[in-house]
Simulated assay, not measured.
Amino acid sequence: MDNQEQRPFPPKPAGPPTVGGPQITSPAAAPPTPRMAPPAAPPGAVPDPSLLKRRRRASLLLKALFAVVLVGVVLALVWLANRLDTQPTAPAGDPGSGVVEISPTPPASPRALPQEGVTPQDYRLGDCFKDFDPAALRSTVVACDSPHSAQLVAVFRYPGNDLYPGREALAAKALEACHAAKLAPAAYDYALNFQRAYPSGTSWDSGDRRVDCYVTADAGNVINTSVLP
């Protein structure tokens, strides 16, 4: 509240004169003592040491908090940069199609067949395999008009920067590829099954992004033609 000026009350008026006696007046009422605000510190006065300590402590606390937040932001950025740098990339020439491939295209340089020791990442859509084992690390690719037990009929390639989607999602995508496959009428001359192959978590980390669908014959190398149109 602002300081306000206070004035003493005026003295009471004198009473009526007494006949034959002296005139007596009542003493004036004592004015109340005004309440004054504490005087401001004069210029150049030294502040309270305890107040200085509290202000200094608050300033140090704010600086420490800012430093902690800044370090946390820097660490988060470093972690994100490392995460992006270590993200597996797609193999050369395999950027990920995003669609199920069901129509083989002629290779630029046809390989001589039969060819033994072909690794799964080198399988081509339409390849035919002798004595096929989907779990094998290498297979023998043969001409489709020679006896074989399996043929690769559909392929899906995940983009190289995708995170591992999990086993169930990969199995579902492989099933989708099998459903999308278009087979020639000759396929119905054999007792065939669809067989799926998809990456494990370990092979995904090494760059494997392929989901394959094969038709296989349980009776062995009994197929003598391509089952694709």
Results as ranks from 00 to 15, higher is better:
39 P>C: 13
83 R>C: 09
181 A>Y: 01
103 S>I: 15
77 L>E: 06
12 K>Q: 15
159 P>M: 09
109 S>V: 03
164 Y>T: 00
113 L>W: 03
44 G>Q: 06
7 R>L: 15
193 N>C: 01
201 G>H: 10
155 V>T: 13
182 K>Y: 10
84 L>P: 04
166 G>F: 07
153 V>C: 05
154 A>S: 07
160 G>A: 00
25 T>C: 12
142 V>D: 01
128 C>Q: 06
9 F>Y: 13
45 A>H: 06
51 L>W: 12
24 I>S: 14
45 A>D: 00
194 F>S: 05
86 T>I: 05
70 L>W: 10
198 Y>C: 04
188 Y>C: 10
66 F>E: 13
131 D>V: 02
175 L>E: 08
47 P>M: 01
120 P>T: 01
85 D>A: 13
79 W>Y: 12
27 P>D: 14
160 G>P: 01
57 R>K: 08
61 L>D: 10
78 V>C: 07
75 L>Q: 13
105 T>N: 13
119 T>K: 15
78 V>N: 04
94 D>T: 15
26 S>I: 09
130 K>P: 03
71 V>H: 03
175 L>W: 13
151 Q>A: 02
34 P>V: 05
100 V>W: 00
62 L>M: 08
63 K>V: 13
107 P>A: 02
137 L>Q: 09
16 P>A: 09
40 A>G: 00
102 I>S: 06
103 S>C: 11
53 K>W: 12
6 Q>E: 13
32 P>E: 08
172 A>F: 04
73 V>W: 09
141 V>K: 09
85 D>V: 14
168 E>R: 08
162 D>C: 05
42 P>W: 03
135 A>V: 05
101 E>P: 02
84 L>F: 04
7 R>T: 13
188 Y>E: 15
87 Q>P: 01
64 A>P: 06
85 D>F: 14
175 L>T: 12
156 F>N: 11
212 D>R: 08
168 E>A: 04
85 D>L: 11
50 S>P: 11
26 S>C: 12
86 T>K: 10
92 A>M: 11
189 D>C: 07
114 P>F: 05
128 C>R: 05
201 G>F: 09
42 P>K: 04
87 Q>K: 15
16 P>F: 12
189 D>R: 09
119 T>A: 10
115 Q>I: 08
64 A>D: 12
213 C>I: 04
140 T>K: 06
38 P>Y: 01
9 F>T: 15
38 P>N: 04
79 W>M: 00
199 P>Y: 10
216 T>F: 13
215 V>L: 11
170 L>H: 11
176 E>K: 11
156 F>E: 10
107 P>L: 00
217 A>F: 05
51 L>P: 08
117 G>R: 14
45 A>I: 00
52 L>G: 02
119 T>P: 11
71 V>G: 04
214 Y>E: 13
207 G>H: 01
32 P>R: 03
154 A>E: 10
80 L>W: 07
215 V>D: 05
57 R>P: 09
212 D>E: 15
106 P>C: 03
182 K>C: 08
43 P>S: 02
62 L>E: 08
125 L>K: 02
185 P>W: 00
58 A>I: 11
204 W>M: 02
62 L>W: 14
185 P>S: 02
83 R>N: 03
119 T>D: 08
190 Y>C: 04
227 V>H: 10
31 P>V: 14
99 V>I: 12
161 N>H: 14
110 P>M: 01
140 T>A: 02
